[in-house]
Design a protein around this nucleic acid. Structure first.
Lengths: 197, 197
DNA sequence: GCTATGTTCAAACGATCGTTTGAATTCGGG
DNA sequence: CCCGAATTCAAACGATCGTTTGAACATAGC
């Protein structure tokens, strides 16, 4: 399943072949069909593990309630940027979700209609601490997505940022600096609301 | 080529098959090899058209030089959000670039090493009008990417935002409002710089 | 009318895909 | 020790992929 997560993250569901997975895991090809029923069954198992890990990760960042809103925001952003440098399973899972954003599988759609709101809830609450009291619910949700977007573009394009012509060195120091920058910009912006829509 | 752009946008380079493209275009299969050399040649042609269209789009917004920085920012953001409502070729091209962010093709890499900087230049210049004078080049580039990210997440996930559980109605009115909101937030944020890194 | 060139076409090729098959192997319980 | 269920294995199957082939067709120039 680790090999499968790596393959699905790297090449997507369709792009990853059962043969490369079983070769990486050093097991027989028919073992997939035997244990998971099919390639789709294997993917479902990986998705379940991914969602469980990401929710667990959400819990880990929950006790940020005692932090100031600026510190909580900085922590949230840094957490979002983690996959840029960390080679752990979480990066794989984030990447799998990126594939799903582009070409959702049936399995994933059902996942999201159930889990999207609780998954966003943390970011919405965080954004609300910065928004004026008069902000609408829709503004808070949009603000949460806005926050995700600011972080996500660096995660998704990490590889391209590291290569020419930009050639950024994506080490821990850079990511820390990036988190500081994004957090400062986001905090500064959320206080503003556009003129009456 | 229109059929190819649609197919590549919908299913990615690997996912799109020559057979479905030629079926949609109602031409013979071998015509691809004959006119474009290969599937990759066809994709290269589509990428060139996409980049040309996006740059042309950039030019259209170039005369924004006379606008105030706030108005120019609002215009840039609104331009970025266009694919949400317009079903035109531009949406396809943005989606093709999303695929490339996840799994860059060799063709695309060469494109980007040549074209990324001029493509970013407009956004960098725009961001610079908001940054303090002491801002570094790296901060300006990161700011441009940051700006792209804020818009892009709504474009990429437009379909999911329109569906449950959020169920936003993505009409012109909403996109105008969204552009106002993002522009206001971005403008408010860029003035801030984090404490010394 | 004939030829040369550009283009389209149906068919086939080799490679890779996910899955199935049936025998070989492993392993715990009577 | 042995039987039976669980698991692994190499091999093959049918489908689909991108590409190639060689004949058929179109058309402009002489």
């Amino acid at each position: 399943m680790k090999a499968a997560a790596r393959a699905f993250a790297r090449e997507g569901y369709e792009g990853a072949s059962v043969r490369t997975i079983v070769a990486a895991a050093d097991v027989n090809q028919a073992a997939i069909s035997y244990h998971f029923g099919s390639k789709e069954g294997l993917y479902r198992a990986v998705l379940q593990a991914a969602l469980a890990a990401l929710m667990r990760d959400d819990d880990a960042q929950a006790p940020a309630g005692r932090l100031s809103r600026e510190a909580a925001l900085r922590r949230f952003v840094r957490q979002q940027l983690r996959p840029i440098v960390s080679g752990d399973e979480l990066s794989l899972y984030v990447r799998i979700f990126s594939w799903e954003a582009l070409r959702p599988t049936a399995v994933f759609r059902k996942f999201m209609t159930r889990e999207a709101v609780p998954f966003l809830a943390g970011a919405v609450a965080l954004v609300r601490r910065f928004l004026p009291a008069r902000a609408t619910d829709r503004q808070a949700v949009v603000g949460a997505l806005w926050l995700f977007g600011q972080c996500n573009i660096f995660v998704r394009n990490a590889e391209q940022l590291a290569n020419p012509p930009l050639g950024l060195t994506l080490d821990e120091r850079f990511v820390d600096w990036l988190a500081d920058t994004i957090a400062a910009w986001a905090a500064g912006g959320l206080g503003n609301l556009p003129a009456a829509s």
